[in-house]
Every structure is written in structure tokens, then in C-alpha cells.
């Protein structure tokens, strides 16, 4: 492990996050590792540990968008959606903060060491309201969720089942008056049950970059219908001049697109695309060898860019 700079911020320190001072629950001291300058206005991207590839991909994408809008990404560093969001922020060249339910100098979960290093190297931080070396305990993580909500301008729920620990972050956000947004998903997918429900109950639905900008009140106004059509026409034009048009049309393109949208079995792909299983497998193997797709433990192929 790389030795990283540690910091302790008291409420009267200049770099103590301003947003916390306005909240009732501001911790007396914030213990942190990495760059304290990362504690800027930001958004929380939260979701389940056992996320689907859709959830992981969305968490990463939203983090990328939020970085482009100039936000820090706050999350809990847990497996699944949290780590995908941190990773997306780092990859987009942005800052991200892991809020821990244990001492900020511990690596928890222990497998996330690499990610923790990457977060600090890219100007982010790992923080906690608990003192150094405080061991992880279940109740501290629920308390930690409150700090995530308190630090954020908005809490975005990516994927979670019902009931879910993720909803404790939502509850804290509501208690603190922090707006909540959620990413809609399939109604057949248990992992999208919580975000779909939240949208029904009034959370901002995030279905494109503009939605995020709007939810964060950066863009100010929602795009009107006419401009949506303009976007649609433009993207149609883009597709026709896209140099790989031929490839998109080809079976390989279709197979790759399918693996991007959902992890797929060769047999299902063959049936959907009206190809023989052998043809599909040949193309998938080429992609696998090139490192573009990988085969998961359940035999489904998934494009590498959704893996976190």
C-alpha cells in the first residue's frame, strides 16, 4: 500500500466542507486520507453491492457525467454500485470521495486496495467521522450513510432491491432535505425495484445527461420537446457518418451491442439474431481474445466496459 497524506478537519477549519456546517449532523472532526480539497460540492451515487451489469454501468456513467458537470462523487466504497461510481469518476479524471464506516486509514472492503490508491492518486480522498483505526461495525455504516447524504447536493440511487440498506441513505437525505434522484430500470428486474419505486414517490428520474444536469440544477431548465427532436435527428446523422457503420450492421456489431446492453448466452444470441451457435461463438471468441468481451461464471458474455 502507498503511504498517503492524512488530514483531520475540525469544524472551524477553512477546508471543512461548508455544506456540512449547515446540517444538524455535522461531525465534529473529519478524518481523511488523500486530498482534503476533494471535499467540494458533489453528488452521492449509491446502490446495492450485488448489482447487475446495468447497475454497474449506470453508476459509472453517472459518475462520468457528474464529473463533467464539475461535481465530486461521494459514495461508500462498497462492492458493486459504489465502487463502479468511484471508478467512473477516477476514469473521467474527476475527484471522488469514499466515505467510510470505519477508520479512514483502514482498507475496507479489503479487496478495494487498488481502488483506494487510485482515488487518492487522482486527487480524491477517503474520509470518515470515526477516528483512525476504528474497526468496521454494521451500525456505523448506517451512520456513515447519513454523512454521505449530508455531504451531497443530491443523492442518486442507481440500483437496489426492496428492502435495501441503500434506502437508509435515501431516508437520511430526506431527513436532511437533500433531493433524491433515481435511475429507472426494468420492472422485471428486482435490482431496479427501489429506484423505480422512488421515482413513483417523487424522486427525479435520471434517464439522460440532461436529466442529471437538471436534477443538479446546473442547466436550469429542462430541454423542450423540439430540442429533443433536434438531438434525435442529429444522432441519426451521426450514425450515418459513423465510420464503423458497416461493422455496426454486421453480426459482430450486433453481438457486441447485445453484450453491452445485457450479459448474453451464445444460444440466446444465436436465436435472437438468427445465426448458428457456432457463428456466434466464433465471433464471441474473437472478441474475448481481443479483450473486448469476457465470459462470466454463469456462461454469459458481457462487454468489458461494463465490468467494474
Amino acid at each position: 500500500m502507498i503511504e498517503k497524506p492524512k488530514f483531520e478537519l475540525e469544524q472551524d477549519d477553512a477546508s471543512y466542507p461548508e455544506i456540512l456546517l449547515a446540517r444538524e449532523c455535522a461531525p465534529h472532526t473529519i478524518y481523511g486520507v488523500g486530498c482534503e480539497s476533494a471535499l467540494r460540492p458533489g453528488i452521492a451515487v449509491v446502490g446495492a453491492r450485488n448489482a447487475t451489469s446495468y447497475g454497474l454501468r449506470i453508476a459509472r456513467l453517472i459518475a462520468t457525467w457528474a464529473v463533467e458537470l464539475g461535481y465530486t462523487i461521494y459514495s461508500g466504497g462498497a462492492r458493486g454500485c459504489d465502487q463502479a461510481a468511484h471508478k467512473g469518476a477516477v476514469e473521467a479524471g474527476g475527484k471522488t470521495v469514499i466515505v467510510m464506516g470505519c477508520g479512514a486509514d483502514l482498507v475496507y472492503p479489503s479487496r478495494a486496495g487498488k481502488l483506494f490508491d487510485a482515488v487518492c492518486e487522482s486527487g480524491g480522498a477517503i474520509i470518515s467521522e470515526y477516528p483512525w483505526q476504528m474497526p468496521p461495525m454494521k451500525h456505523r455504516f448506517i451512520q456513515r450513510n447519513r454523512l454521505i447524504a449530508a455531504l451531497s447536493d443530491i443523492v442518486i440511487v442507481v440500483e437496489a432491491r426492496l428492502p435495501s440498506g441503500t434506502l437508509s441513505t435515501v431516508q437520511h437525505a430526506l431527513d436532511l432535505g437533500v433531493p433524491v434522484a433515481a435511475v429507472p430500470g426494468s420492472i422485471l428486474c428486482l435490482e431496479s425495484a427501489a429506484p423505480n419505486r422512488l421515482i413513483g414517490e417523487g424522486a427525479f428520474p435520471i434517464s439522460c445527461r440532461d436529466d442529471l444536469a437538471h436534477a443538479c440544477s446546473v442547466s436550469g431548465s429542462r430541454p423542450d420537446v423540439a430540442s429533443l427532436f433536434a438531438d434525435f435527428n442529429r444522432s441519426a446523422d451521426d450514425a450515418s457518418i459513423f465510420e464503423g457503420t458497416e461493422q455496426v450492421e454486421s453480426n459482430a456489431g450486433k453481438i457486441y451491442a447485445a453484450c453491452q446492453s445485457t450479459p448474453s448466452l451464445p444460444d440466446d444470441l444465436a436465436q435472437e439474431l438468427n445465426l448458428s451457435v457456432v457463428e456466434v461463438v466464433e465471433i464471441l471468441t474473437y472478441f474475448e481474445v481481443q479483450g473486448k468481451v469476457m465470459r462470466r461464471a454463469d456462461g454469459r458474455y458481457v462487454s468489458e466496459d461494463v465490468l467494474c
Binding site: P266, E279, V281, E282, L284, T285, Y286, R296, A297, D298
Partner: peptide, 16 residues
């Protein structure tokens, strides 16, 4: 042929 090799490769273990 490469189709035969890729079919053979697809039978490799998928376990982690």
C-alpha cells in the same frame, strides 16, 4: 479452421 478453434475455446472452463 478458426471456426473450429473458436468453438473449442468456447468450451473452456467458465469458473472463476
Amino acid at each position: 479452421s478458426s471456426a473450429h478453434v473458436s468453438e473449442a475455446l468456447s468450451y473452456r472452463k467458465t469458473w472463476s
